[in-house]
Structures are given as C-alpha cells and as structure tokens.
C-alpha cells in the first residue's frame, strides 16, 4: 500500500477533545499497513458532504511517522465552515469510509537546524506535533510556543501530553505573546516553524524578516480557507471564462469546472499550484512567493490568492 496515491480509510475511533475539537483514528479499509506519514505531512480528503459535490480539505497527521497501522488527525469545527470541518464533526461516524490522497509533507524539519522554534496558533498545533517527534529524535534544541484561546488550552495541552517536552509556552491570546521577544537573540542556525491563523503567520514572518532571519529558515504550514470578492477568470488556451464566488478559492473553481490544476497543501505554503498570470492584478495571500515574484505580478497561488479587481487571465503550466 506504500505506493498507492489514493487511500480508502475507515474511521476506527473518534475522540471528542472539546466542543470544537475531535480526533479521528483512521485505519486502512482493507486492513493493510498504511503508507508512512513523514513529519509535517497532511492528508487531503476527498469529501462528499452533499451529493455530487466534492470538497478537498487537508488535515495534518498527528500520529508519529513510524506508526503504520493508523493515522490520527484533529479537526476543529470552523464557525464559518464551508462543509469540510462541519462534515467531519456532524456527519462522520465510527465505521464510516473516507477517501484521501496519500500523506505528503511540505513542512519537514531542516536537516541542518541547530535550534527549532515552533510557533502554533490554536489548531495550528497539529502539524507542529508531528514535527516534535522528529526534532526530538535529532536531539535538536527546541522551543514550543502555543497561542490559543482559553477554551482550547486544556485540549491542546492534552494533545501535547504524550510529547514529553520541557515547558511548552502557552499564551492565552495574541496580545499576551511578543513574537519579537521570542525571535530576538536566538543563536545562529535557528529555524522557525509556524502554523496558525493567517495574520499570526504573516506577523511572525515579518518580525523574522526584520530581525534578519533568512527566508530559508522560516517554514510555514498553511491550510487557510480563502474568502473575498467574487471575480472572473479567463484561462489562456481554453477559451473559457469562469466565475469565482466569494466563498470559494480560484483552485476550487478550476476543479469545479473540470480544469486540471496541480495542488498539495491548498493553503498557500507549498507552491505546487502556482499558475502564470497573464493579465490582471493579484491579491497575494500565500506564504510561498518571494517579494520579488509578487512585485513582478506574473504568477500566483490559486489555492488562496485572488484577483485584486474584477478579472484575471491566467495560464496553467
């Protein structure tokens, strides 16, 4: 089952962690061993919340890499869920079958890191958990900073309970955590790993940049959903104009229209889905493109970025 690109998974157990967090234990529907989930990996589920509609949502695997008899994911029920997390929380029951793409990682531990600083915002703790095991194995120095609401703290502490990590630092709310203080004065060879809300990740990225961290030392995992103004898109070579709604991404629209586009994280972090922009201005919301690439304005990540105006023309590689 190692080389299988699509997996049939059975929900073996569901743990309710609190009102908005559930942990799902998934096993192979056929009882075989599952492909290894490398550190920082995610599963992209192909969900059918309603007949005829397929939603692709990615969730980090929080079970250790070497465990192959099951995967664990933790899903937060988003208040503004477009179907994915609501479906997991309300419709998925023990014994149900789910389809997912084999685990992929765009958020691995840098092999030459001398120290790792992990910063998680709320449910962004999930990809961080899967890195901890690997970082400990490498005996690399590590600091963990978790920013969360009061209501989530107990559940997130419980998730970390198995990690035998000295002193994870919890902050209840953004205002209680100074990213500048965390990042300043860190030794050479420090790498940052961040996952959380868009604004937090962007803030950490900016502070790191100001303090002189090279971008190659800043690693981001993002599964952010994207909402914004509706706009129209022409796809070069297809002679077709499509409309992107306010609550869907350009990537989702392309898929809905049957236009094949590559993807992996669906959160603007991995760069797998980058397309060429032929005409129009882009509202970049990703963490992958460099400042120079954004300024040039000739490419974008359709999974999160949108048109600044009402129309765009793109070309898919």
């Amino acid at each position: 089952m190692i080389f299988q690109s699509e997996l049939d998974l059975k929900v073996a157990r569901i743990d309710v962690l609190n009102e908005t967090l559930k942990r799902f234990h998934l096993v192979s529907a056929g009882g075989e061993f599952l492909p290894p989930a490398p550190p920082g990996s995610h599963l992209t589920f192909l969900l059918n919340p309603r007949d005829g509609e397929v939603i692709k949502n990615s969730y980090s695997v929080v079970s250790p890499t070497l465990i192959r008899d099951h995967y664990e994911i933790v899903v937060r029920k988003a208040a503004d869920s477009r179907g994915g997390s609501k479906f997991f929380h309300e419709d998925v029951k023990e014994g149900n079958l789910l389809k997912a793409k084999a685990p992929r990682s765009n958020f691995s531990v840098h092999s030459l890191a001398r120290k790792s600083i992990l910063i998680a915002g709320g449910i962004g703790i999930t990809p961080i958990i899967s890195l901890l095991d690997e970082i400990k194995r490498r005996r690399c120095k590590v600091e963990l900073h978790v920013i969360c609401g009061q209501s989530d703290r107990l559940a997130l502490e419980a998730l970390l309970a198995d990690e035998a990590l000295a002193g994870p630092n919890f902050y209840e709310g953004r205002n209680n955590c100074s990213i500048g203080k965390i990042l300043a004065g860190q030794p050479l060879g420090t790498h940052l790993y961040i996952c959380g809300p868009f604004n937090l990740m962007r803030h950490v990225q900016e502070v790191a940049h100001e303090l002189g961290y090279p971008s190659s030392n800043v690693h981001i995992e993002s599964f952010g959903a994207t909402i914004g103004n509706a706009f129209n898109v022409k796809v070069e070579g297809l002679n077709k104009e499509i409309s992107v709604g306010e609550s869907e991404s350009l990537l989702e629209t392309l898929e809905r229209e049957g236009i094949e586009a590559p993807f992996s994280c669906r959160g603007g972090a991995c760069g797998q889905c980058v397309v060429r922009v032929v005409e129009g201005e882009v509202d970049h919301r990703d963490f992958f493109l460099s400042d120079e690439q954004r300024a040039a304005g000739n490419c974008m990540t359709p999974c999160v970025s949108r048109a600044s105006g009402r129309a765009l023309t793109i070309a898919i590689k």
Binding site: L112, R114, L188, G189, T190, P214, S215, S216
Partner: peptide, 10 residues
Amino acid sequence: CRRFGLGNDE
C-alpha cells in the same frame, strides 16, 4: 561559518 549554523543565504 556553516559549522556554526549559517546557511547559504547568510
């Protein structure tokens, strides 16, 4: 420099 953790960008 690399021995002390500096990378290609540094």
